[in-house]
């Protein structure tokens, strides 16, 4: 989270001059279900990647490397849309502390 600015520190007229800084705001805490990916089943078709509303499925050289749980809200679209027979992603109850 950003430190709260004073009026003198704020750029004029509601301007935000750090593009994409919403990444400092983590939305992972919204989640009840957590996506679990079976790397062996996954064909890296990237359907989950293109449908994810959060952009939290990380891809490198066409291969999924991780699901960024800092932002995943647990909607389950990735698991629902996974075209692999028997699903390469499943949603499971997340064990939370407290």
């Amino acid at each position: 989270m950003k430190k709260q600015m004073t009026r003198k520190e704020m750029p004029l007229g509601t301007v935000i001059d750090s593009p994409g800084c919403s990444r400092e705001y983590k939305t992972g805490g919204w989640r009840n279900l957590i996506p679990v990916r079976n790397a062996e089943k996954c064909t890296n078709c990237l359907i989950c990647w293109i449908y994810c509303p959060e952009g939290c499925i990380k891809v490198k050289d066409g291969k999924i490397t991780e699901i960024d749980l800092d932002y995943c809200k647990g909607c389950g679209i990735c698991a629902e849309e996974c075209p692999v027979k028997g699903k390469a992603i499943t949603m499971v109850e997340e064990k939370k502390e407290n």
Binding site: Q4, T6, R7, M10, L12, G13, T14, V15, I16, P19
Partner: peptide, 18 residues
């Protein structure tokens, strides 16, 4: 830049004061 974001209880007052 992003211009015209919403500012709620935490920032609205500072914008108006500015």
């Amino acid at each position: 830049i992003t211009i015209g974001a919403c500012a709620l209880q935490d920032y609205y007052t500072e914008h108006k004061r500015q």
